[in-house]
Amino acid sequence: MGFFLLTDVLHYDNGGRISCTKREEQNQHLPIIYVITPTYKRLTQIPELTRLGNTLRNVPAVHWIVVEEGKRTLEAVRHLLMKIDIQFTYLSATRYKNVPRTLKGIHQRNKAIFWLRENIDMSKDGVVYFADDDNTYDLEIFIEMRYTKKISVWPVGFVSEKKYQTPILENGKVIKFDAWNTKQRKFPIDMAGFALNTKTFYFNDDLYFWKSFQEGYQETSFLEICCTLNDLEPKANGCTKVLVWHTKTKDPLVYFASYNDPDSDTE
């Protein structure tokens, strides 16, 4: 794509334009990984985005699409993205009306998908990955997903009171999952546990997060639009390695309140 030939350092936001650096010149042969991250204003927002950003700055040929919840982007987040100095797009998205708050993030992920459909050639190989800002990612996971043909999958640590949840393989193919609620979900997989080739969106015009999706069924409802069990490509050494974890940060105010409470067990 032409924008990878730019040598100037350009930082744009909210208008959907692209940040480019000289590093992209060296990585033109690699499929681009488009990392989509919903975020919202809170005390831990900048620390968590910093952690994810410092991970992504070590990933070649990556484009970080950060989508703020609300009517506008935030100067603090914009400043952080420019300081991290990787290719990025910073957008904002307001919450859908008459959609439960528990169905979180769908408006932001859809905003990023809309942007991709309008701004890149999705008929060419690339990778789309939904990476929440409160997770922890081993750099190896980005190597694993780089050459996804359609949909790649792997284990995710610390999900729903489980040490990890994972696809289960037989003869190198995914046959079922070790996860919560496997009976009612065709794809009982976490949002951090799969990545898609951009062509999957190109061949499925209705591949979005629909407002009608049921709470707790976002991932399976989304994947049911575009794939079958046979399409899944197991990564991470046959789904035996955990390379991404849910590591949610405590609200600092809750911690400080407990710390100052003489009757608290917090040390």
Rank of each mutant, 00 (worst) to 15 (best):
G2W: 05
G2C: 05
F3T: 02
F4L: 12
L5S: 13
L5T: 12
L6I: 04
L6N: 10
T7V: 06
D8L: 02
G15M: 08
G15L: 09
S19H: 05
E25R: 14
L30V: 05
I33N: 12
I36P: 04
T37A: 08
K41Y: 10
R42I: 03
I46N: 06
E48Y: 01
G53T: 08
N58V: 00
V59F: 07
V62P: 02
H63M: 05
W64N: 03
V66P: 03
V67G: 09
E68N: 10
E68G: 02
K71F: 04
R72I: 10
T73P: 01
L74V: 05
E75S: 14
H79D: 14
L80K: 05
L80Y: 04
L80M: 05
I84H: 03
I84V: 15
D85P: 00
I86F: 10
Q87Y: 01
Y90C: 07
L91R: 11
Y96V: 02
Y96G: 08
L103D: 02
K104W: 15
I106Q: 06
H107I: 02
N110W: 09
I113F: 14
F114G: 00
W115V: 11
E118V: 01
N119F: 10
G126R: 04
V127N: 06
V128L: 14
V128Y: 03
D132F: 11
D134V: 06
N135Y: 09
I141S: 02
F142S: 00
F142H: 04
I143Y: 05
M145F: 06
M145A: 09
R146P: 04
T148M: 07
K150F: 13
I151W: 01
S152Q: 03
W154N: 06
G157K: 09
G157V: 12
V159Q: 12
V159W: 11
V159M: 12
P167F: 11
I168P: 00
I168L: 15
L169K: 12
L169Y: 12
E170F: 08
G172N: 03
I175Y: 04
F177H: 13
N181F: 08
T182Y: 01
K183G: 02
Q184L: 08
P188L: 10
I189R: 13
I189K: 12
I189W: 14
A192F: 14
L196S: 10
L196H: 06
T198A: 07
K199I: 13
T200S: 11
T200Y: 04
T200W: 02
N204D: 07
N204Y: 08
Y208Q: 03
W210Y: 09
S212K: 14
Q214R: 15
Q218V: 11
T220H: 08
S221V: 01
S221H: 08
F222T: 01
F222G: 01
E224C: 12
D231C: 02
D231A: 03
G238C: 08
V242P: 06
L243V: 09
T247F: 00
Y255S: 01
Y255L: 11
Y255E: 11
Y255G: 00
F256I: 07
A257V: 02
S258N: 14
Y259A: 08
